[in-house]
Design a protein around this nucleic acid. Sequence first.
DNA 1: GTCCGAAAAATCCTATAGGAAATTGGGTTC
DNA 2: GAACCCAATTTCCTATAGGATTTTTCGGAC
Lengths: 238, 238
Amino acid sequence: MTAPLPLRLGELERRGLRDRVYDLVLEMLLQGDVEPGSRLSIDTLAKQLDVSPTPVREAMVQLERTGLVTREALKGYRVAPPFGPEELAELFDARLMLELEATRRAAPHADLLLPRLREAHDLHRAWAEQVTAAMAAGEPSTRVTQEYFAADAAFHRAIFECASNRFLLAMHDDLGALTHRLRQAVIRGANDVEEAHAEHAAVLEALERGDVEAATASMRAHIEGVRTRSVREEIAGD
Amino acid sequence: MTAPLPLRLGELERRGLRDRVYDLVLEMLLQGDVEPGSRLSIDTLAKQLDVSPTPVREAMVQLERTGLVTREALKGYRVAPPFGPEELAELFDARLMLELEATRRAAPHADLLLPRLREAHDLHRAWAEQVTAAMAAGEPSTRVTQEYFAADAAFHRAIFECASNRFLLAMHDDLGALTHRLRQAVIRGANDVEEAHAEHAAVLEALERGDVEAATASMRAHIEGVRTRSVREEIAGD
DNA sequence: GTCCGAAAAATCCTATAGGAAATTGGGTTC
DNA sequence: GAACCCAATTTCCTATAGGATTTTTCGGAC
């Protein structure tokens, strides 16, 4: 038997070109700088990324799952159209169901959950302060907001990861891209990020007490808070 | 202005070769005649179906979503390994959450739901009788069981379609393939299909009375019944 | 018999080419 | 000026080719 290798590179996951193209296009879409409804030409993307159309094509198939693009046979891909009011309501209803169930299931695993959640919560606070500072200064940095979005997503994902249900986690990830796109519309509000952070704190505090009922109630209040802020911006934003 | 075309073929959806390959491989996997864990070579599939590897490759990317195949970069695709006990439990937990939520949301739309549900229920009864007759005769026709599976899936899907939430419906469809694969292990029981039909009847009857509480309770009993029969077969089957 | 290693085969992955369909643009007719 | 039709271009889609990697096979050493 050989001694355990000091450099164990077996963990680093090998990836094909298709996966890198997927990441790039996904980032481009989440960035939000592409207009909804506009075409996403396979060949054009291939030339822009300096690869052949084949891996681009496969990445687009994979992107269909995120809901960020729509496909029509023989006509190509388009950036998904913006949310309508009813689609928005359905997304929040679905997310509420998932988050409540995840909170219920994750609460018993406090030993795993709480450290991760506290760490995510601290990061969320740090970036929230950055965002509010940037907004006060009148310079909305996309760099900062993207980091804030990531911290927000990490907080919620920590709960799902501790819910010990891979299908629940998969459903959350499937809605993740659409949720992220939604977040971008909710940033404009002055103290939105601080409200969100306070709601997160309520969830965390209830979980620290081991109070499952209070935790789910706080999570419900949080999701409904995000919903309220979303529709508020939906109306405010022309 | 021309008169409205008598044959309006605008509805029929045009499909590429990739979609047909997807359907064929999906059917092959749902049929259950391929061994879990075995390799699914792109080139081999392409030769078998007499097409080029390119559309096969795209169909495989799409199949990743169903959970029926697993991919490892540079190593190809494999038929997903069989369910372990914990995976089975998680799948039922997730499905229970979805079905209960769908029942709650579909119940108010009785005018849309009940006709469709009754029709699906009648079909379910018809094929259930076919299955029990075939099993009594000792000839388990895959043709009949597949039709029964389709009728069972149609009953549940009718509820989700009337829940008026596209994301809930999408989640259900995402779990659909795995659920279907699970069904195949639950057929052996003598009167399993009749039990399932009786449980469906309880759900339908409660919905006809407009009793949402009873409907969700019946749905919970149904899913738990399927779970019980599944693990019973899981243990019985070597 | 078992383990190891190199050659051979199979497979994955990307690039390129060309046919088929859709979109665009321009000219004509009413 | 608007609607229509046809050509030109763009784009999608599938097939083929070849390099890179993995898997298998086979021979030899312990």
